[in-house]
Amino acid sequence: MSADTHAHEGHDGHGHHGPKWLQHHFETPIQQFESSKLGMWAFLAQEILFFSGLFVAYGIFRIAYPEAFAAGSMQLNKIMGGANTIVLLFSSLTAALAVRSAQLGKKDEVTRYLFITIICAFGFMVIKYFEYTAKFEHGLLPGIHWNPSHLVGIDAPLDHMHVFFGVYFMLTGLHGVHVLIGIGILFWIMMRNHNGEFSKEYWTPVDLAALYWHLVDLVWIYLFPLLYLI
């Protein structure tokens, strides 16, 4: 190792010859790109396990109290949930298109697509707001706050129905927090794009933000049938 350790010493060790977006500790753009992608996927993997806890709670209690869960699911508004699914899928499409435009170096298109994505995210939160307020009004709340005044399809609440709503509020609430964080990230990336930080050669942050946004979509793809449809 000894002699070779310094084999590349001939190069200037510190002053970098790459473009300014290439961080000093990377040798090539592809090394930086692939590191970022791997890092992001590892982060998404942890997101999966973060949500897994609530999915497991859902699974356990759904199997333990199937009637209560079916009845709880009946209280939710399929139309609103379905609308939200479509809004979120559409935002995922525009996020993917934003990445495509970034890959082609079309700066204005990227801004436009990201803007639509953000609008959709807000749309999702607005629909969610109406759903939540309806649940609050009807007293369909978890734990000791459980006090239903309006029930669909059943005459009286069942034991453990409030557990369904505990899980419902945790899952959708946590997902909602992710949507809000996503809005922040997308907005930040949009502004950076607007300032001309990205180019045909360097669009990694757009890609990473879109990956995060797709994950938010992925989680909802499962939440929708689990909570609303069955």
Partner: peptide, 27 residues
């Protein structure tokens, strides 16, 4: 680690909001 994060988050919510996931008195 994300699993302990969500576990403790549920626990915090169980204390703050009451959920009935871990608390036997709530099912």
């Amino acid at each position: 680690t994300p699993v302990i994060a969500i576990t403790l988050f549920i626990l915090i919510m169980e204390n703050v909001l009451t959920l009935g996931i871990f608390n036997p008195q709530l099912g």
